[in-house]
Design a protein around this nucleic acid. Sequence first.
DNA 1: TAGTGGTCTAGACCACCAA
DNA 2: TGGTGGTCTAGACCACTAC
Lengths: 256, 256
Amino acid sequence: MDRIFAPEGFDEAGAGPLYLQLQRRIAEAVASGRLRPGDSLPPERDMAALTGLSRVTVRKAVEGLVGSGQLVQKRGSGTFVAQRVERLEQALSLLTSFTEDMARRGKSVESVWLSRGVHSPAPEEVMALGLGAGDRVARLERVRRSDGVPLAIERASLSVQVLPEPEKVEASLYAVLEARAMRPVRAVQRISAANLGARDAELLGVPVGAAGLRIERIGYLPDGRVVEFTRSLYRGDAYDFAVELKLAPETERKDP
Amino acid sequence: MDRIFAPEGFDEAGAGPLYLQLQRRIAEAVASGRLRPGDSLPPERDMAALTGLSRVTVRKAVEGLVGSGQLVQKRGSGTFVAQRVERLEQALSLLTSFTEDMARRGKSVESVWLSRGVHSPAPEEVMALGLGAGDRVARLERVRRSDGVPLAIERASLSVQVLPEPEKVEASLYAVLEARAMRPVRAVQRISAANLGARDAELLGVPVGAAGLRIERIGYLPDGRVVEFTRSLYRGDAYDFAVELKLAPETERKDP
DNA sequence: TAGTGGTCTAGACCACCAA
DNA sequence: TGGTGGTCTAGACCACTAC
């Protein structure tokens, strides 16, 4: 521990800014296991005294490591090495629900409901769900956890005709839809990446600005009607989506 | 402009930290169009003087907006409102090359080569490509641009038996492979999100820590042999991947 | 209550860019 | 060369947490 914060070796021959040098030292200590998940770092004022740097500079070094998820800071408490998160993989070619997906790999699933209710639709919901004037939407908003670790935020919108009583959804939305013969058989997803905002980052237990996978899904019934419009945010550090691709048909491919 | 940086109105009744208040003012000015893409902000020292805040506080406000891609800072030059980037969409179910994909939507494509050559394989390349002892790999590393905007970094690895002369690849790798009857017909991709590091962020022209889509692709020949192992990083703010999902077969779905 | 991280200041020097 | 952002300092007060 003392070696990490020793004043010797700083600013030798163009090693870059001091805060980056300190950042590198801490990152290496975490990578090499000298600092382990859950370990606490010395208070900022102590790190400053030990290294001979100012507290502002120490904070700037720590800031970067918090941003990349390697450290966690708790006001009034201290600075700690972050717990590691196991990376999960999901086959993206199959239309499955989160609950089923996790069950298949033997993970527990918990939903923390943020809200369940009937509302007036937002313009994008009217568009996506093809609602008529006066139609209302059921909204389900929850944080998905597995083994206690938050993995995703899910915001689902359905016409009230599909789901009149959203309060009655417990673990799996798709199970409820299946019982009503309203389970989608086809869906179109759009995937992109985004830096998480303050609220979403807090819900997922990651620093503000961390990378998240944003997935928008529109699910269809066999007759082509839209059932669900779901916007999800997955933790970038905890989730992999796997896709299998096939060669495009000749007609498509040769198309200039 | 003056209104944005007027000293009045700061710190009224629990509006939060000063740097966030200033950040909000600037973000609102950008959102409302009072500050337009390309516009320059006053120098940090001037903003500090105008608002009555310290330069450190002004910098902290600007820092957040640079991180979220709304502002761009150029050392020795100034601080500017970022250009907006049009979001593209790619159908993920078809195996197409970047070149073909862009041509289909009428976009120009430029490749900036970072390196092309034959190397000793890294362990992950040996794994992914199924190389034998002594086999060497062709590596292609380039930045993909469309209409002058960098969209992705692509790092492709292929066995030298598949691509003996990587220097000869110009616009499209798949076109070269097709000529050699080595074009993949199937591929498996893994998609995740990650915050971009310094080097990758610079190559894509986004701030360090911006969200990127990381895509790892392994491409197969009809006989099952692996052709390519490609790792790409797409700008999160410029790319959407679209996927169509189908209902999983009963046997799969019922599997606990 | 003592200690922690969060915010803020005034002032300084450096590295880079454009004229 | 003058102006810009980038780094760094010493010192201060606040808000929260744990005891």
